[in-house]
Design a binder for these strands. Structure first.
Lengths: 286, 286
DNA sequence: TAGTTGCTTCCATTCAGTGGAAGTTCTGGT
DNA sequence: ACCAGAACTTCCACTGAATGGAAGCAACTA
């Protein structure tokens, strides 16, 4: 959801003409915040998620107040509520961070929990046979949401991590998810302009559509140097018992100039394994 | 937490002799709920965590209201707030479940995230060499909280799962965590009576203390048939840069009558690997 | 068809949440 | 050591947001 601290100033000056009589007349600058208590509480948590990636695992009260667009005293009180419940925790230095309670509840979330539990053994197999980064992601809104990531010690540095959101058009899992998404989702996704991360990122809508068709044909996506320099990926769809694609697996490898059919086979196998475990029977759909 | 429900007289207020709904004679006493809005919101989430294990991935509005101890209309409104933020999601059938947003925030929780990220490669190694269930847990309150669990397809059925809480005295990781916990924690833990799960569960405080000493001496815990019939476990402590024990790794195997030194070595290695990755240098402490 | 259970909407009442301001603690500059 | 300024905590009078009883729907089922 958008950022924008939803702080609304009602400025008398505007000709806005809502003649709501009385009070808010001339020149009054009344910062009106019509968020409910709940919304304010959520805004506080959102302050921790706010800026993608690197920033801020821990925040000070003041920072939270700013990001949430709340007065300090209010923030203070609400943060205390979170802390007493365990949703936030306060450290010695006075900084706050997300609390264990959130983690505990978070891992109970059905989609994440079920998919992960079922898929993990297959992802491990895939990791063992390929020794490459292994990803599991689902489609959420306009992003690929990374549910799981396995990688060894030697691992190439990647942006992905569990819980990360990455674009659909520039990642292997993303393209697979998009390829099997309802047409209106594709439509909408391609309507907005697609960010180019590297020279090879495909951002032209028609070219993307073309690709999606190929992926459906092959049942496999191949990406190369489109998100992170030096890395390529191979991704395949995971289906549930209804035949619908609900997730995607991928491996991310260092870019080479030869295609490794063994790797592709391994990714396919993993995806099929998980699909079967989810109750998918090939027979049902072509 | 505070919160004895205070009692307040409901004003009679009955102008005309309205049927008092039979509830009671004049001067009705109604329990007043002095929880804050925040506390009520949290109570709603807690309704999903409530009964350990198997129960309820999804709940109806009424069930939530009951478990949270809130009037239906209030529940209705507050649940709607959670849904609009993404903390809960509403399914077609009208049932509610924990939402993806919670998962997303949950995995950001520093302790969980950092430990997991660092430990995972070592856990994978351990899994590969032993092919047994691999656990990673931390001490939280009076429980061992399971941060990670790896297991293959053939896996023996176990109660543990990511996010689970299991007793300290009847699990490998639990005993290790207890062995290196501050004395007052041990004191308090042993003060309460310890549940016996199987005939071999050690529940006598002095016997447990004895065991903890042995574990500290060996730097390793061995459990057998104390929580789940037919399974045994080997656990070792993970230390951070200050030398403090912050977590424990274990493998859970089918019980055999011979001790496998290779397995013990593997668990030790994994624990040491993670500790080193956390910045622990053996030199610091004996 | 009437009864039951479960969800949603409405709205007058009131009390919980609000936030400005004053008080307190921590930080770092000289 | 001393002070300035920032960051945090506490206080409390005021008010509009949250409350929950009740009535209205909707979906089952006996």
């Amino acid at each position: 959801m958008s950022g924008k601290p939803a702080l609304k100033r009602t400025v008398g000056a505007d000709a806005g003409g809502n003649s709501d009589a009385g009070s808010s007349a001339a020149g009054t600058i009344a910062p009106v915040d019509d968020r409910s208590v709940a919304a304010r509480l959520f805004a506080i948590l959102d302050a921790f998620a706010a800026p993608a990636g690197a920033t801020s695992r821990t925040l000070t009260l003041t920072t939270i107040a700013q990001r949430a667009g709340l007065p300090l005293s209010t923030t203070h009180r609400l943060v205390a509520e979170w802390v007493s419940w365990g949703g936030l925790s306060k450290h010695e230095n006075g900084q706050y961070s997300l609390g264990m309670k959130l983690w505990e509840l978070g891992v109970q979330t059905p989609t994440a929990r079920n998919l992960r539990t079922i898929a993990l053994p297959y992802l491990e197999d895939l990791y063992e046979t390929t020794r490459e980064h292994v990803h599991l992601a689902i489609l959420d809104g306009r992003d690929a949401l990374y549910l799981e990531k396995l990688s060894g010690h030697h691992a190439v540095r990647l942006i992905s991590r569990v819980g990360a959101r990455l674009p659909l058009h520039s990642t292997g899992v993303g393209l697979v998810l998009l390829a099997y998404a309802p047409t209106d989702v594709v439509q909408q996704y391609l309507a907005a302009s697609l960010e180019r991360f590297l020279p090879r990122t495909v951002t032209e809508p028609e070219a993307v559509r073309q690709r999606l068709a190929e992926i459906r044909l092959l049942g496999l996506a191949r990406m190369s140097e489109e998100m992170t320099a030096g890395s390529s990926s191979i991704a395949a769809p995971i289906r549930d018992r209804t035949g619908q694609v609900v997730a995607a697996v991928s491996i991310v490898t260092r870019t080479t100039d030869t295609v490794d059919p063994e790797q592709e086979r391994a990714v396919r196998l993993a995806a099929q394994g998980v699909s079967r475990a989810l109750g998918y029977r090939r027979a049902q759909q072509s």
